[in-house]
């Protein structure tokens, strides 16, 4: 198993949100702040790790005919567990994210990886895939959340201590205090625009890299 490639895929090339364009519903809905994005990202990461390892572990037992219902049941269980855990330990964050955590069940990213990867691979690669994909999804959520939060309310990681505990209060920064907030960034249209710009930036970088690679190849040929 090529682990570096696995992580490169998850974090950049085949990123859930920016490469595969999956899981956009929670992404657009919860990223009103970087903290919310981080919370959702961690929740998705947890669910991914749980489901991928579980499914990979039992993959030999499930008969192919009923694998999809089984996957759904397992994912639903993992999501419910995460949901309960957040409600128990991070109640304030739960108030914000609550609705969307339940929706992780229908998150195509998780189901897709259970089906296409975990159900065919041993436990360790499945776990690695889950971590790579989950982290990839998390950083995009944080990035979109941060863009919207900075523009919309002039802060960054506001209320981070609610999520991560009081030790992380230093994360909470105020970027602009005087200028008016661009409310549209926090409203739904802002989510589309932020994600759109992020995707544009990714593609521009990819294009640059490809051009450079081609130039390198040409040079090698000469």
């Amino acid at each position: 198993m090529n682990y570096p490639q696995l992580f490169k895929d998850g974090l950049w090339d085949n990123n859930v949100a920016m490469g595969q364009m999956l899981a956009l519903c929670p992404l657009l809905a919860v990223t009103t702040s970087a903290t919310n994005g981080l919370g959702m990202g961690i929740a998705s990461l947890a669910v991914l790790i749980l489901t991928n390892t579980l499914i990979s572990a039992v993959r030999g037992v499930i008969s192919p005919q009923v694998r999809i219902p089984v996957l759904i049941v397992m994912i639903a269980t993992a999501v419910t567990l995460t949901d309960m855990a957040i409600n128990a330990w991070m109640h304030d964050l739960y108030k914000v994210l609550g609705l969307f955590i339940a929706l992780i069940v229908t998150n195509c990213a998780i189901f897709g990886h259970a089906e296409s990867f975990a159900s065919k691979q041993p436990v360790i690669p499945a776990l690695a895939d889950a971590i790579a994909m989950g982290l990839g999804f998390t950083w995009v959520l944080v990035a979109v959340g941060a863009m919207r939060e900075v523009l919309g309310s002039g802060t960054l990681f506001a209320n981070a201590s609610l999520l991560l505990g009081p030790g992380f209060a230093w994360l909470e920064t105020t970027i602009f205090s005087t200028s008016p907030d661009i409310l549209i960034a926090i409203l739904p249209p802002g989510a589309f625009m932020a994600l759109g710009f992020l995707i544009v930036i990714k593609r521009l970088i990819d294009q640059r890299l490809r051009n450079r690679e081609e130039a390198g190849l040409v040079q090698m040929q000469h």
């Binding site: 907030d181 661009i182 409310l183 549209i184």
Partner: peptide, 9 residues
């Protein structure tokens, strides 16, 4: 967009 973002001005 302006109206939604900056209702006051």
């Amino acid at each position: 967009a302006l109206l939604i973002s900056f209702p006051v001005p």
